[in-house]
């Protein structure tokens, strides 16, 4: 009976198996999860030190700083998205499995978001408070960051799949992904700034949500194609 269930290629079972495995791995190696968070906090600390401590300056540059730091932090962890799987051979298992590959790459991107993106969103209010952000702005920031980091995980999974197995690492990946990530940065940071200025924010939030949906539908297929190409 158990065998019958195991042999049924249920799409959701493969998806949840990949997510559960990645989260378990991250739990066993908390460094992978914590390093981007520390990076995020440190980059956010650099800006007040470089720009100056006046309250107006901080309140003005806060949204941009938080967004740039979040973008760089999630980019930092993207390099390892397929790298450890590639090294221990489990990537081959993913490619050989009867499950549809786009579903599995979607699972990889979702688990990357759960491991790297979500903690960032949860920690961001702490950074925002030091930049004198009011509560409403913090709420908008967390919403935009959630959509934004999800989009970045999906977009980044394409880049990670293209560069897996190359020894060039993060620099090449950044070169590929950063230009494509600019719409997310523009809408994310501007929407938070507009919230800080008490303007309407719905346009930016809708755009980010729409972009996230587009990436959810397209990125898994591009990632799957890229993975097949890099592992021929």
């Amino acid at each position: 009976m158990n065998d019958v269930i195991l042999n049924m290629p249920s799409v959701l079972r493969g998806f949840s198996a990949v997510v559960r495995r990645d989260i378990l791995l991250a739990w066993k190696r908390p460094g992978d999860m914590l390093n981007p968070l520390f990076f995020f906090a440190m980059v956010s600390t650099l800006f007040p030190l470089a720009v100056g401590p006046t309250t107006e300056q901080l309140a003005f540059s806060g949204p941009g700083v938080v967004w740039v730091a979040a973008l760089l932090a999630s980019l930092l962890s993207l390099n390892s998205l397929f790298m450890s799987d590639f090294e221990d051979g489990s990537l081959d298992q993913l490619l050989l499995s009867p499950q549809p590959l786009p579903m599995l790459t979607l699972a990889k991107a979702v688990s990357h978001w759960l491991i790297a993106g979500l903690p960032l969103v949860l920690v961001s209010p702490l950074v925002a408070i030091t930049f004198q952000m009011p509560a409403r702005t913090i709420g908008v920031m967390m919403v935009t960051l959630s959509f934004g980091t999800m989009s970045l995980s999906l977009l980044g999974s394409i880049g990670a799949a293209l560069t897996v197995g190359l020894n060039r690492g993060t620099a090449l990946l950044s070169l590929l992904i950063l230009p494509l990530a600019m719409p997310v940065l523009i809408f994310g940071a501007r929407t938070v700034s507009m919230a800080a200025a008490d303007d309407a924010v719905s346009a930016g939030v809708y755009f980010l949500a729409a972009y996230c949906m587009l990436m959810l539908t397209l990125a898994p297929f591009a990632t799957a194609a890229a993975l097949r190409i890099s592992n021929e």
Binding site: L162, P179, L180, P183, L218, I229
Partner: peptide, 17 residues
């Protein structure tokens, strides 16, 4: 693959800029 992903994104980049 990268060129195609870029081609999908270029209109979005223009619009957002």
């Amino acid at each position: 693959v990268l060129a195609l992903v870029g081609a999908v994104n270029i209109p979005i980049i223009h619009f957002s800029v």
